[in-house]
């Protein structure tokens, strides 16, 4: 899915580059040399630490 909106369209940015696509996350994982599971964990931890996510 488009990671930010829950639309079930993994590569759709809905005409707005502010939406995060699956490919962008894969590219980020590759750049950070982590697999997708570690990327998920890192994002989750980052959101908890810096954005008040539960």
């Amino acid at each position: 899915m488009c990671i930010t909106c829950g639309c079930d369209e993994p590569e759709a940015n809905h005409g707005n580059p502010k939406h995060i696509t699956l490919q962008q996350l894969k590219d980020a994982a590759e750049a950070a040399e982590v697999d997708i599971n570690q990327l998920k964990k890192n994002i989750d931890e980052g959101l908890k630490r810096y954005a008040g996510a539960q």
């Binding site: 909106c5 639309c7 369209e9 590569e11 759709a12 809905h14 005409g15």
Partner: peptide, 9 residues
């Protein structure tokens, strides 16, 4: 507004 199904993919 939400861009549902508005995409190049």
């Amino acid at each position: 507004r939400q861009g549902m199904r508005v995409s190049t993919d």
